[in-house]
Design a binder for these strands. Structure first.
Lengths: 251, 251
DNA sequence: GTCCATCCGTGCGATATGTCAACAAATGCA
DNA sequence: TGCATTTGTTGACATATCGCACGGATGGAC
């Protein structure tokens, strides 16, 4: 069977090294990477030199930076997903019709990952794009995807709390989120009113495949102008329409 | 100094395995991966099992698929680039003003990599997004970026030819492209008239930093309706304006 | 059923790699 | 400047891993 001896430590360590690079740490020295990743300095050094040698990183003698070559790895993944290509035309049309940005995402651990998006004029502070991540607990699509999991699994992902408070309205108690998930499950859609960012609302529904399994979440993002309840109706109708049309197509 | 003994073969092999996954090969068996990557089956197996063990791949006992976790690797890279965040607001405004999609890309080998984009209604057959790649030789931004290189380097990237013919108008002779690069260099912008796809035109200019070095390319994509020469003027003016404003900001 | 082809899992020797410790160079601080 | 600390690099040894070759499993053709 699959034994522990079939695991290549070097590969795992190298991937961990890549993941240590973030927006707040774009350029790192060997020791920095070693400290963040928990690897030995010598090991981190070999990983970084290997990455540089194969064009995944640049090295100026002191600091390492990632190169666009690394993007290939992520793109390889997106390209293997049929979902983005299938939903993109629907997103384009939906987004055009309602005049708002719409997106499709899936769950990866405690985060939602955008896999397709049709953007209208931006209301959010950061630019979202395929590959972007947001926490699941405070986003409409995240609530949809968490609600699709067994309760125990959702609770495990939410953790012991408290969850980070992103705005005054953010639900920070995992049990409060769990209660909201039950509502979402019952009503078949999720509303978020400025929980992830001030001034930003969102409406989401699940995307089901032909067998009725939830494979992704679909949303529309809105600027918070009038109370969300009052204006959600038309958006929910548009989302439901796309949901129904995609249900026959998705596998 | 940096010796060959500081290179970790296992890491390089694992990354190569990830890159074997493509749109036309979303699910692969061990033997398939081994054949495509040139690795031994046993080695490919260990790589794949390692990826699966760490959540980068799924394994159903027969086929492996990549998980969204892999997207983290690419996102780590995009997040470390200051460029996308700086140019995004400019792209949004530019795109809104001219009513067409606009993008910023950089060069990676023989391909351009989109790092930021503001999309208007889609005219291209495939959805472009940050991380997407197109060949440099037949795109407006690619011509800009190739023109910024030393001639010998550009020629090396183009290779011996002939280059793939994507439409009837595609330049397939590397020397013809080199001649075009000289023109691009002289006039400071590149025009593409349906060389990458029927019905699609594009206008691009370089983005310079404060020191005058070319750090990226900026373009506007257009549907081919009237002859490109006749309508390029206003777009070039808009591009030039953004170029000038960014020049003071980019490093 | 038999044969053939393909694929997967495993054992083994040679080699590459990780860990640890020590050292040298660079850096920060008073 | 002088001292203390951090950082990059190297060497040695134990161990993990590679690539090869073999055996078993699977599936299709006839």
């Amino acid at each position: 069977m699959i034994g522990e001896r079939d695991i290549m430590g070097g590969l795992a360590k190298g991937l961990a090294v890549i993941e240590t690079f973030r927006a707040d740490r774009p350029r790192q020295s060997i020791s920095e990477v070693a400290a963040v990743s928990g690897l030995d300095r010598a090991t981190a050094r070999r990983c970084l030199l290997t990455l540089a040698h194969h064009g995944y990183a640049d090295y100026d003698g002191k600091f390492f930076t990632l190169t666009p070559r690394v993007l290939r790895l992520g793109t390889a993944c997106l390209a293997t997903m049929p979902l983005p290509q299938i939903v993109q035309p629907f997103l384009d049309e939906l987004s055009e019709r309602v005049g708002q940005s719409s997106s499709v995402s899936i769950l990866d651990g405690a985060e939602i990952v955008y896999v397709a998006r049709a953007a209208q004029k931006r209301v959010m502070s950061i630019a979202l794009m395929p590959g972007s991540r947001l926490p699941a607990y405070c986003t409409s699509m995240g609530r949809i995807l968490l609600a699709a999991l067994p309760e125990a699994e959702a609770r495990r992902i939410l953790g012991p709390g408290p969850l980070p408070r992103r705005t005054a309205r953010t639900l920070t108690d995992p049990e409060a989120v769990m209660a909201e998930l039950a509502r979402v499950r019952a009503q078949g859609h999720a509303l978020i009113d400025q929980e992830v960012e001030e001034g930003l609302c969102s409406v989401a529904v699940p995307l089901l495949n032909a067998r009725g399994r939830i494979v992704a979440a679909l949303n529309i993002g809105l600027a918070a102008t009038v109370p969300l309840d009052e204006m959600a109706g038309p958006y929910l109708a548009a989302l439901g329409e796309v949901q129904a049309r995609l249900r026959a197509i998705l596998t």
